[in-house]
Write a protein that binds this DNA or RNA. Sequence first.
DNA 1: CTTAATGTTCCCCA
DNA 2: TTGGGGAACATTAA
Length: 288
Amino acid sequence: MPELPEVETVVRTLKPRVIGRRIIGVEMRERIDGTSARIRVVVTPPEEFKRQLCGRRIENVERYGKNLVLRLRQEASAKPVFLMIHLGMTGRLTVEQTPEFPTRHTHLILALDDANHWIHYSDIRRFGRVRATDHLNSDLGPDPLEIAEEEFFQLLRSRRAMLKSVLLDQHFLRGLGNIYADESLFRAGIHPSVPAACLSRDRASRLYHGIRETLEQAIERGGSSISDYVDADGRRGSFQLLHQVYRRTGKPCLRCGSSIRKMIVASRSTHFCPTCQRRSERKKTSRK
DNA sequence: CTTAATGTTCCCCA
DNA sequence: TTGGGGAACATTAA
């Protein structure tokens, strides 16, 4: 359930239910397979993790790229601790009314001080990661909803890789994933394999706005629920109903009727309309 | 039985 | 250093 609009939706639905509450209990269930090395969803060692969380109040819930960040504090004067959660591919963060572990895929339960609600983290594939730290490291690129157009243009110029690869790179922009990279490129009318540095100012501008509009609409619709994603209240999003290209291979383009194609870029399925998304700009007086 | 899936990281090679 | 390609991680559903 991973990209920016989904995480933003979880943040918004989680906020009213947990802000101001204290965490009074931490329960973990780590599954360990004999075959492979031990993969833990909660990265912070268990004792340290409990020590960092227990008794602290949830001051705020924010999004950092695809991460959820809960800012915790003992009291106003104390130093904050951050609970960072990355949902990976199938992670769910929900508020439930039971302290019981409902399935074998629930890995973490936080008890709140209202005695009625528990925060559950479940993750079928266990690609997600949960950690507690006292400092936020910022090795990710700018947020696509905050970056200025000129800064975006300058960033693009520094990368010669294919646009699709660049948009997926969290060090370039934080928050886009496979769905929204494809949908944004379609909205901008640009082919996924165009080198980022080759974009004209005009096309870069269309991409900038294409990304923003796609993300904003997706957030309005509560994100895309393809298989696992739900918000903190367990509700599915509906933006998947508005997808123009993602997973629509062979279906007609909703704009021009051409058959949507799929190619592999950066080891990821990449969907595009061969008619609406050109490799180069077609100008009326163009010689190309 | 095979394939693909909203993600990240690591390794190899050009 | 940059970028492409692929594997690994783990589970499920088609």
